[in-house]
Simulated assay, not measured.
Amino acid sequence: MSSLVIVDKQKLENPPLEIHYLGDRVLRQPAKRIAKVDESVRQLAKEMLQTMYSSNGIGLAAPQVAVNKQLLVIDCEPDNPANPPLILINPQITQSSQELCQFEEGCLSIPGVYLDVVRPKVIEVSYKDESGRPKKLKATDLLARVIQHEMDHLNGIMFVDRVGNNLALTTELKKHGFNVQAVKPIA
């Protein structure tokens, strides 16, 4: 797969975009679909990747950098230069497995907080790539989890909204200086 968005997997002293944190209203707004995949979208994806690598992340959604668009960048192997990052534009989950799995998640918008979240183990997602071509992807395990986590951001949902253990949630958020009131639990 030749990519139109080439980025060195390195930490920049001054990443191009600013990541917003839990409690910021921009993280709670539903993102808008991208009508046309053009150079501006590719540039945004590039800057998001640079920002993600600079922050030791494996996924970043446009709303986390205050851009209200349905764009995700993901790289489950940030230390492997041979593994190209994934760029998902207007992603939609078309299928989810009945089988669920619980795993610890963290988020660049809630630094230092790691808590268990239950999600489907396998998903199928359709999206457009950075050329605007429609694609389908079947994802399992970590990749499936990262895609679901980042797609939640497009709907104004944060992973802490899905944490079932209230005591652990409250303890972790307070320990790292986040307001528990900023969580919007999903029933």
Rank of each mutant, 00 (worst) to 15 (best):
Q98A: 14
I34Y: 10
G57L: 03
Q181F: 13
Y127K: 01
P15M: 00
T94P: 02
P120C: 15
I110Y: 03
M52P: 03
E77F: 11
A35Q: 14
T171K: 02
Q95W: 12
L49H: 01
P85F: 13
A139N: 11
I87M: 13
L72G: 12
K69N: 07
M158H: 07
I110S: 03
L44T: 05
S109H: 10
Y114E: 04
M158W: 09
I123F: 15
N90M: 03
V160K: 12
I186Q: 15
N68F: 12
A139V: 05
V180C: 01
R42N: 10
P81Q: 02
V73E: 13
I147G: 13
P30H: 06
A45D: 12
I74K: 07
G57V: 03
I34T: 04
V73Y: 01
G106D: 07
L22P: 15
P120F: 15
N83F: 15
V183A: 14
F159R: 07
D79C: 05
G177E: 02
Y53F: 08
I186P: 12
C76A: 14
E99Q: 14
L71D: 12
L60C: 07
I157C: 10
A35G: 04
E104I: 15
T170W: 02
V183R: 15
P134K: 03
D38R: 06
N166T: 06
V65M: 02
L173C: 07
Y53C: 06
M151P: 03
N155W: 01
L173Q: 10
L4E: 14
K135G: 00
I6W: 10
Y114N: 06
G23V: 11
T140R: 10
K46I: 02
I6C: 14
N179V: 05
D38H: 07
V5G: 08
L86G: 11
L60P: 00
L173W: 08
F178V: 15
V5T: 11
K174I: 11
T170Y: 03
N165W: 07
V146T: 12
R162A: 03
I93K: 12
A82P: 05
S96P: 00
A168R: 04
K184Y: 10
A168F: 03
P30E: 10
I89S: 11
S96I: 04
A66F: 08
G164A: 07
M151K: 04
D116P: 10
L137I: 00
V73Q: 04
S54R: 00
K175Q: 14
D129K: 05
L169P: 06
I93N: 13
A187F: 14
Q92M: 08
H153E: 13
L44D: 12
I6E: 15
I6F: 11
